[in-house]
Amino acid sequence: ELREAFRLYDKEGNGYISTDVMREILAELDETLSSEDLDAMIDEIDADGSGTVDFEEFMGVMT
């Protein structure tokens, strides 16, 4: 189920989504998050600083 959700956002099928897209997902899930909260969450999610979120990083957030 998580893989299907990931595929919805990984429109190009390249195995990752951008941190911008991940930020939008988080904002949709919790509309009360401030910009600073979102920045901090993205920094934590994208631990390797690649600017992308792969499936493993995505799973870590969603579980």
Rank of each mutant, 00 (worst) to 15 (best):
D39P: 01
S34N: 10
M62V: 07
M22C: 05
T52E: 07
A40Y: 10
E57H: 15
R23P: 00
I25G: 00
A27H: 12
I25A: 05
I42N: 01
S18N: 06
N14P: 01
S18Q: 05
T52R: 11
I45V: 09
G51L: 04
S50G: 05
F58K: 00
E12T: 10
E1A: 14
T32F: 09
D48S: 10
D48P: 03
F58L: 05
D39C: 06
I25S: 00
V61Q: 04
I42M: 10
I25Y: 05
A27I: 10
E4I: 04
S35T: 12
E57N: 13
E57F: 08
I25T: 00
I42C: 02
A27R: 14
L38F: 03
S50M: 09
L2M: 09
M41R: 07
T63K: 09
E56W: 13
L2Y: 11
M22T: 02
D30W: 13
S50K: 13
S35Y: 08
A40S: 10
I45A: 11
T63H: 09
E4V: 03
D46Y: 03
L2R: 02
S34A: 07
E28L: 15
K11P: 13
I17V: 06
F55E: 06
T52Y: 10
D43T: 12
D10P: 00
D30A: 07
T19A: 06
D46E: 03
L8W: 11
L26H: 00
L38I: 13
Y9P: 04
S50R: 11
D43E: 13
N14A: 08
R3N: 08
G60L: 15
E28V: 11
D10G: 02
D20E: 14
E1D: 15
E28G: 14
F58W: 09
A27G: 08
E1H: 13
D30G: 07
D37A: 11
T19K: 07
L29E: 02
D46F: 05
L29V: 07
L2E: 04
T52I: 10
Y16G: 01
S34D: 06
Y16P: 00
G13S: 06
F55I: 05
A47N: 08
A40V: 10
L33C: 05
T19F: 07
E1F: 11
T19R: 07
M62Y: 07
S50F: 05
A40W: 07
D46M: 03
I45Y: 04
E56D: 11
R23A: 02
Y16M: 05
L38S: 01
D39V: 04
G51K: 06
F58E: 01
G15E: 03
M62E: 02
T19V: 13
F6H: 02
D39T: 07
G60N: 14
A40L: 10
S50P: 02
G51T: 02
Y16N: 03
K11F: 09
F55V: 05
R23E: 01
I45F: 05
L26V: 03
D20L: 13
D46H: 04
S18M: 06
V53P: 00
E31W: 12
E31D: 11
S34M: 07
L33R: 08
S18G: 07
L33K: 05
R7K: 15
E56V: 12
M41D: 01
A47W: 12
E4S: 04
A27V: 08
G51H: 08
G49S: 08
G49I: 02
M59W: 09
E44R: 14
S18P: 08
M22I: 09
E1G: 13
F58D: 00
A47C: 14
E36A: 12
E44C: 13
D39W: 07
E31F: 10
N14S: 09
G49P: 01
S34V: 05
M41W: 15
E44I: 12
T52S: 08
E57P: 02
L38A: 02
R7Q: 15
D10M: 05
I25N: 00
R23Q: 01
M22A: 05
T32C: 09
G13D: 09
S34W: 04
E44F: 14
N14K: 12
T19Q: 03
I42A: 01
M62P: 03
D48N: 13
G51Y: 03
E56R: 09
Y9N: 06
Y16L: 05
E44A: 14
V21F: 06
I45W: 06
V53R: 01
D10S: 02
G49W: 03
E24Q: 14
A27E: 06
G15Y: 03
D37I: 10
E28K: 15
G15M: 03
A40H: 12
G60E: 11
G15S: 02
E31A: 14
I17G: 00
R7Y: 11
R3D: 12
K11Q: 10
A47K: 15
S34K: 07
D43C: 12
N14C: 08
E24P: 01
A40P: 01
D54M: 12
L38H: 01
I45D: 00
Y16W: 14
R7P: 07
R3H: 11
K11N: 08
V61A: 10
F6Q: 02
T32P: 02
E44T: 12
Y9K: 04
A27Q: 12
E12N: 08
M59Y: 12
L26P: 00
D48Y: 06
E12V: 07
L8R: 14
R7M: 15
A40T: 08
A47G: 11
M59K: 09
S50T: 12
D48I: 07
A47I: 12
M59D: 02
